[in-house]
Design a protein around this nucleic acid. Sequence first.
DNA 1: GGCCATACCTTGACTATCTAGGCATCGTGG
DNA 2: CCACGATGCCTAGATAGTCAAGGTATGGCC
Lengths: 110, 110
Amino acid sequence: MPKTTKALLHGSLDALVLKTLSFGPRHGYAIAKWLAEHSGEEIRVEEGSLYPALYRMERREWIQAEWGKSELGRRAKFYRLTAKGRRQLAAETEEWLSFQGAVGRVLQMG
Amino acid sequence: MPKTTKALLHGSLDALVLKTLSFGPRHGYAIAKWLAEHSGEEIRVEEGSLYPALYRMERREWIQAEWGKSELGRRAKFYRLTAKGRRQLAAETEEWLSFQGAVGRVLQMG
DNA sequence: GGCCATACCTTGACTATCTAGGCATCGTGG
DNA sequence: CCACGATGCCTAGATAGTCAAGGTATGGCC
């Protein structure tokens, strides 16, 4: 794996995971891989961040878990987006775009 | 003041403050106002976040403090960017752009 | 047999931010 | 004259999210 990604993840992790699940149910390990692949390795989620985040979101009923089998036949816990989670994703995405948009504009001011 | 901006500030505050100071020395209160004004009130930094951040950055020698008088003649502590701080700003800006760029691309995936 | 990839989980430390206060000065309106 | 809002600084405590570093177990491959 490349270099250190720092703590910029803070505040965007939930949205990223929800977004990943919006393309269909996935298990934890697969979520991390999907994010890494679709961000050119820029987004690397540590397991110590991912699993607690998944519990958090399950508690808030944004996602639902179910045990199943991975593509390789292993025991794996699949998460799928709930309706509530879909609304949350929309809200967080909008919030992220407007806030980080503002940050980006300030940082790039001449 | 408008509505709640949430906790999305995490990880971008340092860069924002450094950026503000890159246009010339300012005191704490003025930094917060400047950021609010130049972001359409999108970025609102609480004082409880700002002052500790300023000490942190002073300790790291990214900025230097000096007591002076505000435009209104009040006692105020002015901060100015050091050479080290300028390098830090460049590094953090680049990091922010690449990381949040990746986040934005993922969140906006069709 | 040993090792790597897959897949899950937990503990502890750290750090940054927010909430919510407090202090002091000044100008203005009633 | 006095109250109040704006200016300007500071701090304590709570919270929360992330990371580092461990641990378990299975399967495939050399």
